[in-house]
Protein backbone atom coordinates (compact mmCIF):
# COMPACT_ATOMS: atom_id res chain seq x y z
CA UNK A 1 0.00 0.00 0.00
CA UNK A 2 2.87 2.34 0.74
CA UNK A 3 4.32 3.72 -2.50
CA UNK A 4 8.08 3.34 -2.92
CA UNK A 5 9.85 6.53 -1.82
CA UNK A 6 6.96 7.62 0.42
CA UNK A 7 7.68 9.67 3.53
CA UNK A 8 6.38 7.52 6.37
CA UNK A 9 6.02 7.97 10.11
CA UNK A 10 5.51 4.72 11.97
CA UNK A 11 4.05 5.18 15.43
CA UNK A 12 5.58 3.20 18.27
CA UNK A 13 3.30 0.21 18.31
CA UNK A 14 3.70 -3.37 19.46
CA UNK A 15 1.45 -4.35 16.53
CA UNK A 16 3.82 -2.82 13.98
CA UNK A 17 6.84 -4.32 15.71
CA UNK A 18 5.52 -7.88 15.94
CA UNK A 19 4.26 -7.88 12.36
CA UNK A 20 7.66 -6.67 11.08
CA UNK A 21 6.00 -3.60 9.55
CA UNK A 22 8.12 -1.18 11.59
CA UNK A 23 11.34 -2.81 10.48
CA UNK A 24 10.21 -2.82 6.87
CA UNK A 25 9.45 0.90 7.00
CA UNK A 26 12.65 1.87 8.79
CA UNK A 27 15.16 -0.42 7.16
CA UNK A 28 14.05 -1.72 3.77
CA UNK A 29 15.35 1.36 1.98
CA UNK A 30 12.08 1.52 0.07
CA UNK A 31 10.68 4.49 1.96
CA UNK A 32 11.80 7.73 3.58
CA UNK A 33 11.21 6.87 7.23
CA UNK A 34 10.80 9.89 9.49
CA UNK A 35 11.79 8.30 12.78
CA UNK A 36 15.53 8.00 12.07
CA UNK A 37 15.47 11.55 10.79
CA UNK A 38 13.77 12.94 13.89
CA UNK A 39 15.98 10.91 16.16
CA UNK A 40 19.02 12.57 14.62
CA UNK A 41 17.77 16.05 15.43
CA UNK A 42 18.77 18.21 18.31
CA UNK A 43 15.71 18.49 20.56
CA UNK A 44 16.83 21.77 22.07
CA UNK A 45 17.71 23.54 18.84
CA UNK A 46 15.27 21.99 16.41
CA UNK A 47 12.12 21.48 18.41
CA UNK A 48 10.00 23.44 15.95
CA UNK A 49 11.36 21.60 12.94
CA UNK A 50 10.74 18.29 14.73
CA UNK A 51 7.14 19.23 15.49
CA UNK A 52 6.55 20.28 11.90
CA UNK A 53 8.01 17.09 10.49
CA UNK A 54 6.16 14.73 12.80
CA UNK A 55 2.86 16.61 12.51
CA UNK A 56 2.43 16.24 8.78
CA UNK A 57 4.02 13.12 7.34
CA UNK A 58 2.82 12.02 3.96
CA UNK A 59 1.90 8.64 5.41
CA UNK A 60 1.38 7.61 9.00
CA UNK A 61 1.19 3.97 9.98
CA UNK A 62 -0.10 3.11 13.43
CA UNK A 63 -2.71 1.21 15.33
CA UNK A 64 -5.72 1.89 17.57
CA UNK A 65 -6.79 0.95 21.07
CA UNK A 66 -10.32 -0.10 20.23
CA UNK A 67 -12.61 -0.59 17.26
CA UNK A 68 -16.33 -0.65 17.99
CA UNK A 69 -18.80 -2.87 16.21
CA UNK A 70 -20.41 0.30 14.76
CA UNK A 71 -17.04 1.11 13.18
CA UNK A 72 -15.63 3.85 15.44
CA UNK A 73 -11.86 3.84 16.02
CA UNK A 74 -10.53 4.91 19.44
CA UNK A 75 -6.97 6.06 20.02
CA UNK A 76 -5.59 7.34 23.32
CA UNK A 77 -2.42 9.37 23.63
CA UNK A 78 -0.47 10.85 26.52
CA UNK A 79 1.30 13.60 24.59
CA UNK A 80 -1.17 13.89 21.72
CA UNK A 81 1.65 13.72 19.20
CA UNK A 82 0.19 10.69 17.42
CA UNK A 83 -3.28 12.15 17.23
CA UNK A 84 -2.65 15.32 15.21
CA UNK A 85 -1.32 13.57 12.09
CA UNK A 86 -4.05 10.93 12.24
CA UNK A 87 -6.83 13.53 12.51
CA UNK A 88 -5.60 15.74 9.70
CA UNK A 89 -1.85 16.27 9.40
CA UNK A 90 -0.93 13.11 7.51
CA UNK A 91 -1.84 12.69 3.88
CA UNK A 92 -2.72 9.02 4.34
CA UNK A 93 -3.30 6.94 7.43
CA UNK A 94 -2.95 3.18 7.75
CA UNK A 95 -4.06 1.61 11.02
CA UNK A 96 -3.30 -2.04 11.66
CA UNK A 97 -5.74 -3.53 14.15
CA UNK A 98 -5.57 -6.94 15.88
CA UNK A 99 -8.99 -8.60 16.08
CA UNK A 100 -8.93 -8.68 19.90
CA UNK A 101 -9.40 -4.86 19.90
CA UNK A 102 -12.96 -5.13 18.55
CA UNK A 103 -15.44 -4.10 21.26
CA UNK A 104 -19.24 -4.01 21.18
CA UNK A 105 -19.63 -0.27 21.76
CA UNK A 106 -17.98 3.05 22.63
CA UNK A 107 -18.29 2.64 26.41
CA UNK A 108 -16.59 -0.72 26.30
CA UNK A 109 -13.89 0.81 24.08
CA UNK A 110 -13.19 3.51 26.66
CA UNK A 111 -13.12 0.91 29.40
CA UNK A 112 -10.66 -1.11 27.35
CA UNK A 113 -8.39 1.95 27.17
CA UNK A 114 -8.52 2.77 30.91
CA UNK A 115 -8.54 -0.70 32.36
CA UNK A 116 -6.51 -2.76 29.91
CA UNK A 117 -4.34 -0.61 27.61
CA UNK A 118 -3.32 2.06 30.11
CA UNK A 119 -1.69 -0.16 32.77
CA UNK A 120 0.33 -2.00 30.11
CA UNK A 121 1.30 1.25 28.40
CA UNK A 122 2.19 2.96 31.67
CA UNK A 123 4.52 0.09 32.50
CA UNK A 124 6.13 0.33 29.04
CA UNK A 125 6.63 4.12 29.26
CA UNK A 126 8.19 3.90 32.72
CA UNK A 127 10.59 1.23 31.50
CA UNK A 128 11.40 2.84 28.16
CA UNK A 129 11.54 6.52 29.10
CA UNK A 130 11.39 6.62 32.88
CA UNK A 131 8.15 8.63 32.84
CA UNK A 132 4.51 7.66 33.34
CA UNK A 133 1.96 7.54 30.56
CA UNK A 134 -1.58 8.93 30.76
CA UNK A 135 -4.93 8.80 29.00
CA UNK A 136 -4.64 12.52 28.38
CA UNK A 137 -6.15 12.74 24.92
CA UNK A 138 -8.64 10.39 23.28
CA UNK A 139 -9.48 10.46 19.60
CA UNK A 140 -12.69 8.96 18.25
CA UNK A 141 -12.87 8.53 14.49
CA UNK A 142 -16.47 8.02 13.42
CA UNK A 143 -16.11 8.88 9.78
CA UNK A 144 -13.46 10.09 7.32
CA UNK A 145 -14.48 13.02 5.13
CA UNK A 146 -11.85 12.40 2.47
CA UNK A 147 -12.60 9.00 0.99
CA UNK A 148 -9.64 6.65 1.16
CA UNK A 149 -7.54 8.80 3.50
CA UNK A 150 -7.76 6.37 6.40
CA UNK A 151 -7.42 2.64 5.92
CA UNK A 152 -7.89 0.29 8.85
CA UNK A 153 -6.54 -3.20 8.31
CA UNK A 154 -8.12 -5.82 10.53
CA UNK A 155 -5.86 -8.75 11.26
CA UNK A 156 -7.51 -11.90 12.51
CA UNK A 157 -5.04 -12.36 15.37
CA UNK A 158 -4.33 -10.83 18.75
CA UNK A 159 -1.77 -8.09 18.06
CA UNK A 160 -0.38 -5.47 20.44
CA UNK A 161 -2.41 -3.93 23.26
Amino acid sequence: MLPVGAEVYNNTSRTLETTGIAEDIERSGLYQPLRPRLYQMDREMQGREMRQLSASPDWVVGSVHALTEEGALLIASASGSQIGPIVFGAGHVILVVGAQKIVPDFDTGLRRIYEYCFPLEDHRARQAYGIPSGVNNVLIINKAVLPGRITAILVNEALGF
Binding site: T12, S77, A78, E121, G134, G160
Partner: peptide, 11 residues
Protein backbone atom coordinates in the same frame (compact mmCIF):
# COMPACT_ATOMS: atom_id res chain seq x y z
CA UNK B 1 -0.54 1.37 19.94
CA UNK B 2 1.67 3.23 22.39
CA UNK B 3 0.16 6.29 23.99
CA UNK B 4 3.43 8.11 24.12
CA UNK B 5 6.15 8.47 21.55
CA UNK B 6 8.68 10.20 23.68
CA UNK B 7 11.91 10.24 21.74
CA UNK B 8 11.02 9.28 18.16
CA UNK B 9 13.72 6.65 18.49
CA UNK B 10 13.51 4.22 15.60
CA UNK B 11 11.87 1.08 16.90
Amino acid sequence: MSMIDYDAKPV
